[in-house]
Design a protein around this nucleic acid. Structure first.
Length: 501
DNA sequence: AAAAAAC
């Protein structure tokens, strides 16, 4: 059994991010790939008991000797670790993937893609080549992960068989809707049917117990509704060929959806042990990384990105010191809104539902046209707010972390962290911890597909200063301080970010 | 004691 560690050439569909003039100097990839493998195998995450070794250790322990790395000329930063001797050739065109003509047409005509992005070039052959191994895939925000698993699902579906063959589980309603829309667009010429499994407002909907069984060939939804449909035997999984977890680290995190996800996974595995499982996310922290590799089959493949390489170079990060809460609002309206209006749409992230309501009211009272979204709103209201934002009817959206992950709106060039993301478990300990993953996901709402963007972190008090420092250290990036509160200083920042002339 | 889903 041989392991190959390789990286693919950069063939991005969308405009690629500008290459950074001064790439950080570090050890060769061979060293890093090996280190990562070793670390995962018997590294500091000692919480994993010996049982973790019987699954993953088998694969990696064997492979260690033969691990090798191919240094690509293009500073490629995705590492592929494949299991066994199935050779995978990265796809430089979509034609390389043996897709149906209808699906190819969807990619070119509907999606307007030209060729696979880097993550697509590497992951699609792994997903689509027999024996259809499980895959854990990490890739940068906005790099085209959705296409990977949507295309993966569509090309594994047999169009002639009217039964659920692909299932995708997402952490939020908004993401399930977005993924369904992408899939329907891409599937336009294939005739493949799909269904979005999300809760409806109970008043005007037929209860699941009275509904016909699901016939759609692809089902995309949130854990609760999918679980419910399965429990009521309305969603059969015996014909399932492929199961996808979007934002997989959150879906399998202990404080995330782990219980729901595992229950769904187990049920599918019970009737259908051969079902291929794909886990996709931009982030996998060490704890969850260790856990997820034990939830998939031992012979899975994986793609990973080093933590330091994850921050998007095209999105400039800034911090602003604010004396109190009120001055946060003043910074937003007097400086950021003042000059930010012409640079595209803005998302303001807050930590709690209540802050979302409060900030929304304050800004509306001052005459600004903003909307807000959070999980306590009614479903129809949430859908409406998102639609208005997508249609460009609103420029500024205040949001809790409901939209922190995956939300893809290319016109968003500006992200404001009104509050820094905090790890909940750490809130009551002496030393608060930032939620690094959420931070990265929020930042990733700007700079979609390598576009330019900027983030303003509003810092208030010693705790925020410390949190910000930790974030900078964790990702090895410098977050530049806006030197003073003046229109000129913010203009300069946005110019530097490439958002203003 | 957050937020997410949803009972």
């Amino acid at each position: 059994m041989a392991e190959s560690v390789s990286s693919a050439s950069s063939n991005t569909t969308p405009p690629p991010p500008e290459s950074k003039p001064s790439a950080p100097v570090h050890k060769s990839w061979a060293d890093e790939a090996e280190e990562d493998v070793l670390e995962e195998n018997n590294g500091p995450s000692s919480s994993a008991s010996a049982s973790s070794l019987n699954v993953d250790g088998l694969a990696i322990g064997e492979n260690k000797k033969e691990a090798r790395s191919l240094d690509e000329p293009d500073d490629s930063n995705i590492k592929a670790i494949t299991f066994g001797d199935t050779p995978y050739t990265s796809a430089s065109t979509f034609e390389d993937l043996n897709l149906s003509p209808e699906l190819l047409k969807g990619l070119y005509v509907e999606m307007k893609f030209q060729k696979p992005s880097k993550i697509q070039a590497i992951s699609l052959p792994m997903i689509l080549s027999p024996p259809f191994k499980d895959l854990i895939a990490q890739a940068h925000n906005g790099s085209g992960k959705t296409t990977c698993f949507v295309l993966g699902m569509l090309s594994r579906v047999d169009p002639k068989q009217q039964a659920p063959q692909a299932l995708c589980i997402c952490p939020t309603r908004e993401l399930a809707i977005q993924n369904t829309e992408v899939l329907r667009k891409m599937a336009k010429y294939t005739g493949i049917s799909s269904e979005c499994a999300i809760p409806t407002d109970s008043r005007d909907s037929i209860p699941i117990s009275k509904r016909a069984p699901i016939m759609a060939q692809v089902v995309i939804g949130t854990p609760g509704t999918i679980k419910k449909w399965m429990t009521f035997k309305k969603l059969g999984v015996s014909r399932l060929k492929i199961l996808v977890f979007d934002e997989a680290d959150q879906m399998l995190a202990e404080d995330g959806f782990r219980d729901d996800s595992l229950r769904i996974m187990k049920e599918i595995e019970r009737v259908n042990p051969q079902c291929q499982v794909l886990l996709f996310s931009a982030t996998f922290n060490d704890v969850v990384k260790n856990f997820v590799s034990r939830t998939v089959k031992p012979d899975h493949n994986k793609l990973f990105v080093r933590r330091e390489e994850l921050s998007l170079e095209a999105v400039k990060q800034y911090k602003v010191n604010c004396i109190d809460e009120l001055s946060k609002i003043e910074v937003i309206k007097d400086y950021i809104f003042e000059i930010g209006e012409n640079v595209g749409q803005t998302i303001i992230f807050v930590r709690t539902r209540n802050s979302a309501r409060m900030l929304h009211k304050s800004l509306v009272d001052m005459g600004y046209a903003v909307t807000s979204i959070q999980g306590a709103l009614e479903h129809v209201e949430r859908d409406k707010i998102v639609k208005e934002f997508r249609d460009g009817l609103t420029q500024v959206l205040i949001s809790t972390d409901v939209l922190a992950r995956g939300f893809d709106q290319q016109q968003v060039n500006l992200v404001i962290n009104y509050d820094l993301p905090l790890k909940h478990t750490a809130e009551y300990t002496r030393e608060p911890e930032p939620d690094y993953e959420v931070y990265l996901h929020r930042v990733g709402r700007a700079g979609r597909f390598g576009r330019k963007g900027a983030v303003f972190n509003l810092i208030c008090g010693d705790r925020d200063v410390m949190l910000m420092q930790k974030i900078e250290k964790h990702f090895g990036t410098e977050v530049i301080e806006v030197p003073e509160n003046s229109v000129e200083a913010y203009k300069a920042a946005l110019k530097e970010a490439g958002l203003l002339q």
